[in-house]
Design a protein around this nucleic acid. Structure first.
Length: 228
DNA sequence: ACCCAGGGTCATA
DNA sequence: TATGACCATGGG
């Protein structure tokens, strides 16, 4: 059974990227104006449609609390009300506070990218993961999109999409999938940035959980699946 | 009336 | 370590 569940080559991944780019165009992620706003969005978007996150972020902006100190000054109940549209508001209010408390404790009033600049990426990632409510995808999204670190972000779409094309086992770990990209692709910030965003664009459009045939998936044609 | 979303934690076996 | 329950709004 050649071609099934073997590690995708550099060329395969590049073809996937190019096909997605041709189909969906540049995504220009992350939608957010400051590193702090991006990090806040990374927490709020956990298992949540982005449109809902935008409402919550708009509320925070209108309240003038898209800054670490200001956000920490909010009462828990006020913060919960502001982020209500993003769902899981009780959980996420705690997660946001825990994260921002860590951030302020770590770098004080320095701007996040400046204050965290001296911390090596593996260590910074470990520290982020130690904050309750920040898992691997959230940490990596912050690292790549807010802080410009070269880490590949893996999400549910990435796993589903690779599994359906026979490129990974469905149960492959986050780290295994991430390593697959990071080992095979040039370590390029714009490439990592765009590739993940394009996979999300694919997921939003076509690669739905209840569509296992994925018949409309443009990659099936472009890449010559099923054997790939 | 469903299904789903740019996850993560915690209890249980 | 590996499942399952739980969190909750809003669009399709």
């Amino acid at each position: 059974m050649p071609g099934l569940n073997r590690s995708p080559s550099t060329r395969t991944l590049e073809r996937i990227h190019d096909a997605l780019l041709a189909r969906f165009g540049p995504q220009n992620w992350w939608p957010g104006e400051t590193p702090f706003e991006i990090m806040v969005g990374a927490v709020l978007t956990q298992n949540t449609a982005w449109g809902n996150v935008e409402r919550a972020v708009a509320n925070l902006r209108a309240a003038g609390v898209l800054h670490p100190r200001a956000l920490l000054r909010l009462s828990p109940s006020r913060l919960t009300r502001l982020i209500r549209p993003s769902g899981y508001f009780n959980v996420k209010a705690r997660r946001l506070r825990d994260f921002v408390a860590w951030l302020v404790g770590r770098i004080g009033d320095q701007y996040p990218v400046q204050g965290l600049r001296g911390i090596a990426t593996p260590r910074l990632r470990r520290e982020l993961l130690s904050v309750r409510g920040i898992g691997e995808e959230t940490a990596d999204s912050m690292l790549l999109y807010a802080l410009g670190r070269k880490v590949f972000v893996v999400d549910a779409y990435t796993r589903r999409f690779l599994a359906r094309h026979g490129l990974i086992e469905p149960a492959a770990s986050y780290g295994a999938i991430q390593a697959l990209f990071e080992k095979s692709l040039p370590r390029s910030r714009p490439l990592f940035n765009e590739f993940h965003a394009l996979i999300v664009a694919l997921g939003k459009n076509l690669c739905r959980p209840r569509n296992p045939r994925c018949g409309e998936c443009p990659l099936l044609k472009v890449l010559g699946a099923p054997s790939l």
